[in-house]
C-alpha cells in the first residue's frame, strides 16, 4: 500500500487507532499490534496517583506515534489549553482537535472547532480536526491551515457506519489535505467503504476495543483498510441497471 503523508510525515499504515474503551492495557497492546497502526490517539486527564501502568508505555514499546486529542472539551478555550498541555506532556505539536457540542450525541461543535483550529494553527500546532460530514466546514478548515480533516461517519461509539457517503465523497473531492474518516465505524466493511469513497485513512477505537475479540477485529480492520485503498486505486466499475455479459454472446 502507498504511504499516508500527514504534514510531511510518512505512515505505511492507513489505519489510525484510538486507545479508548479497551478493558485493559494488555488487550489494548494486542489489538494495537494486530492493527499495524503507527499513529494512535490518547486523551489528557488529571493524573491519578493510584493508576498502574500507562498507555504511553504501551505506545513507546510498540514505537507508535502518539496523537493527543482534546476529547471532553466543549469550548475553543478548553481545547487550546488541553492541546498546549498535551504538547508539554508528550513533546508533540500534533493534536486531534475535538470540541463537542453535547454529551448525548458527542457531535462536534463546528464554531468552537473552527475557532480553536485557527488559534492552534497560529500557535504552531499540526491540527487534525474532528468534524461533522460537512464539506463546507472541511474546506474552511483546510484553508485555515489544518493538516488533515476528520469527518465522522456516524456519532462516536455508535457503530452505525457511514451514514452519508455522498458527503464524504464531496469532502474527498475538494480536499488537498488528507481526509481521515473518524468515528462511527462498526465493522470491517465500514472501514473498507471509507477507503473506497476516497478517504486517505480511517480512525477508529470502539469498533476494535469493544469487539468480543479486539485483536481479531483489529486484524480485520487492517485488512479492510488495505482492501478499500486498493479498490479505490483500481477504480471500480460503474453501476448499471441491467446485466452486462462477461462471456461472449455469440457461439
Amino acid at each position: 500500500m502507498d504511504d499516508l503523508i500527514i504534514a510531511g510525515e510518512k505512515f505505511s499504515s492507513r489505519l489510525i487507532m484510538g486507545t479508548g474503551g479497551a478493558p485493559s492495557l494488555e488487550v489494548l497492546d494486542q489489538a494495537l499490534a494486530a492493527s499495524g497502526t503507527e499513529l494512535t490517539t490518547v486523551a489528557m486527564r488529571r493524573l491519578d496517583p493510584g493508576s498502574r501502568g500507562s498507555v504511553l508505555d504501551v505506545l513507546r514499546r510498540r514505537d507508535i506515534k502518539v496523537l493527543p486529542n482534546t476529547a471532553g472539551c466543549f469550548t475553543a478555550g478548553e481545547a487550546v489549553l488541553t492541546a498546549r498541555l498535551a504538547r508539554e506532556a508528550l513533546g508533540t505539536n500534533w493534536v486531534k482537535l475535538e470540541v463537542i457540542a453535547d454529551e448525548r450525541t458527542l457531535l462536534p461543535d463546528p464554531i468552537e472547532t473552527f475557532d480553536a483550529a485557527e488559534r492552534l494553527v497560529a500557535d504552531g500546532f499540526v491540527v487534525l480536526p474532528y468534524i461533522g460530514d460537512d464539506p463546507a466546514l472541511a474546506r474552511r478548515l483546510e484553508q485555515a491551515g489544518c493538516a488533515a480533516v476528520m469527518p465522522l461517519g456516524a456519532p462516536i461509539g455508535s457503530g452505525l457506519g457511514i451514514r452519508n457517503p455522498h458527503s464524504i465523497e464531496l469532502i474527498v473531492e475538494a480536499a488537498s489535505v488528507p481526509v481521515i474518516l473518524d468515528a462511527g465505524i462498526g465493522t470491517a466493511s465500514d472501514a473498507a467503504l471509507a477507503m473506497e469513497l476516497g478517504c486517505d485513512a480511517v480512525l477508529l477505537a470502539t469498533a476494535v476495543t469493544r469487539a468480543q475479540r479486539p485483536d481479531l477485529m483489529a486484524a480485520a480492520m487492517k485488512g479492510a483498510v488495505a482492501a478499500g485503498r486498493l479498490a479505490r486505486q483500481a477504480g471500480r466499475i460503474p453501476r448499471r441497471r441491467y446485466a452486462e455479459a462477461s462471456s461472449p454472446t455469440s457461439p
Binding site: T19, G20, L25, L28, V42, R46
Partner: peptide, 10 residues
C-alpha cells in the same frame, strides 16, 4: 493547579 497526563481515549 491541574496536573495532567495521557490516558486511554479517542
Amino acid at each position: 493547579v491541574e496536573v495532567l497526563t495521557a490516558v486511554q481515549g479517542g
